[in-house]
Computed example of a mutant assay.
Amino acid sequence: MSANRLPLAGVLGWPIAHSRSPRLHRHWLARYGIEGDYITLGVEPRDFEAAFRALPLLGFRGVNVTIPHKETVLRLATKVSDRAALIGAANTITFREDGSIYADNTDGYGFLENLRAGAAGWKASEGPALVLGAGGASRAIISALLSDGAPEIRLANRTRSRAEFLAGEFGGRVKVVDWLHIEDALDGVATVVNTTSLGMTGQPPLQISLKRAPKTALVNDIVYSPLMTPLLEEAQSRRMRWVDGIGMLLHQGRPGFEAWFGVAPEVDADLRAAVLAE
């Protein structure tokens, strides 16, 4: 790629208009006085490979990849990080100067950094975690919790077979619990994470009571629309520790921005406000 071109990055998905990633990266570009841009790229699955391979020629240093391309992009990469390989999906791509393509997954990193920032002193090793949902986000979060020392993951999903499949990929520390008995699984947990869309604006509510969870447990919902979900409101009312979902988005963007634009960016209140602004 030409050294004279303005550095570009972006996010590929279908659909993509809802993405808040441009707000995130453009805020950092402005803050650090970097002449460049970060744009949304709506690409249908049938056109993905052709569009993706053209990006370095257009001056792109890298991209984020979201639904439905996070698995597809792995086969197009020259090198895949260990965590992206384990998760089976990538969200952060870097086009290197030597022509190689590096695929990484920073969702788990963003998840852990969000919890550490939002609940000082929290560690996954504090005790068992209850994870709700068995989709792509759940896979990244389970991987992150295990790598951070969680002694046990209790995994529940509305379709039990999906939870069992996912548990089988991670080994004995992941135990499947029945969706109808979620509240039984709250006994003795240190961390509760909702990775499902339940409780999100326009979706059915998450039917769960936290009364059996220890008061010391940390509750996190990766949904950020609304920012305060009913799950988080209950945790707050019970005076439990809780962390909302927007920070996961903010922190997962840091490794990519540093790789593409050469600056390690900060996550702070100004960034949070810029990304949440309507």
Rank of each mutant, 00 (worst) to 15 (best):
L29I: 03
A163G: 09
P226I: 05
G253K: 03
E35F: 01
A150W: 07
R238W: 00
H25L: 06
H18V: 00
R23N: 13
E152G: 10
S209H: 04
V275Q: 01
I39F: 09
W179R: 10
L227V: 15
I208F: 02
V11Q: 08
D107L: 05
V193W: 14
L132G: 05
V275H: 05
R61K: 13
V189Q: 05
W260Q: 06
T201S: 14
D268E: 12
A77N: 03
K123Q: 15
A134W: 03
L146M: 01
R160P: 05
A89N: 00
L76Y: 10
F48T: 12
L218Y: 10
R162N: 01
G127T: 00
E126H: 12
L112F: 10
P265Y: 09
L218C: 07
D178Q: 09
N114F: 02
V43S: 10
G59P: 07
A235T: 09
R61V: 00
G13H: 06
V177M: 02
P128D: 01
G127L: 08
L218A: 09
Y38M: 07
P128W: 00
K211A: 14
G188S: 04
V223E: 10
L115N: 02
S81C: 02
R154A: 00
G256V: 05
G133R: 04
E97A: 15
D104V: 05
L29D: 03
S138Q: 05
T92Q: 10
V176H: 11
D107K: 06
W242A: 13
A17Q: 06
H69M: 06
V11W: 03
N105T: 08
W122C: 01
E152R: 15
V65F: 06
K79Y: 13
E97R: 14
G247P: 11
W14T: 10
T78S: 15
D104F: 01
A213I: 08
G245Y: 12
V43D: 11
G135D: 07
I141Y: 11
P255N: 05
T106S: 14
A90T: 07
W122F: 15
L41W: 09
Y32W: 07
P205H: 06
N114E: 08
A119V: 11
R116E: 06
I39E: 15
L86S: 14
H18I: 01
H18N: 00
W14C: 13
F60L: 06
L12S: 03
H251L: 01
V189Y: 07
P128N: 02
A119I: 10
N105C: 00
V192G: 10
A269C: 02
A3L: 15
A144V: 02
G36I: 06
R53G: 13
R23S: 13
R241G: 02
A163W: 05
I87R: 02
L145N: 00
W14S: 14
F257Q: 01
W179N: 08
I93H: 01
D187L: 13
P205L: 13
R272P: 02
M1H: 08
L166R: 01
N194Q: 01
V73A: 05
F48P: 12
P7Q: 14
Y32H: 12
L146W: 00
E169A: 12
P204D: 11
L145V: 01
R238K: 14
N64K: 08
Q236D: 14
S197I: 04
D98C: 06
K175S: 04
